[in-house]
Amino acid sequence: MIEVSNLSKTYKTGKETVTALSNINLSIRKGDIFGIIGFSGAGKSTLIRCLNRLEEPDTGRIVIGDTVITDLDDKELRLARRKIGMIFQHFNLLDSQTVFQNVAFPLSVAGHPKPYIREKVRALLALVGLEDKENVYPSMLSGGQKQRVGIARALVNDPDVLLSDEATSSLDPQTTYSILELLQDINAKLNLTIVLITHELDVLQHVCDRMAVIEYGSIAETGTVDKLFLQPESHTARRFVSIIDYYRDKRSIIEGFGAGI
């Protein structure tokens, strides 16, 4: 579904150049929830933003479905982006528009007729459980509700792919789980391919089928989520998993003493 080959990206700020991605190769299967995990600054956002070319790659090739994203001109890219939904850590809803108008935005950009828009937006709001919030402005919503609006907006054009850049990172744990459940639900219902970036192992473990670990702008390892836990190879993966091991060991010691804390 998504093929990334030899993708590289450097940022130039003044005299300095930062290599954000070097020679990334990735293959993501249709219908998977694919997790990309790494520490802060590893290059996760740059990678996912290259997929819809919010960031222009320096070199490399990106194919989504039948479309060679890296070959498109501006106009073709705008059309292709309609089929690539995206959700963000800070939701990025428009405060000047109601929930309905926010979700309708991609459809009116695409020039759909009003009755179609109304029907489609209502269906999406029902899917994310916000039927009753149609005429409310985003500032009245909780974080979790805002992200639901973000998800509805990202899905309203029936995309093939959903890109999620730390979409749960500013939510509390309980809300995080409800959003992750929603994503799983959507993935199953719509057979949507989801690329999910996170710095939280918990998120990865909860919803992802396969994963890639990114370290200093390179893919350090890929495989199933189970493999990451059972045989972590990269430095990053071992550090993530060792935190869990630490508490498991500690717990068994405490249990061994028969002490309750």
């Binding site: 919010l54 982006r81 963000f88 990025n92 935005f105 054009n157």
Partner: peptide, 10 residues
Amino acid sequence: GKIEAAKAMG
């Protein structure tokens, strides 16, 4: 972020 979101929607 809002501008990016609009760009990402085409």
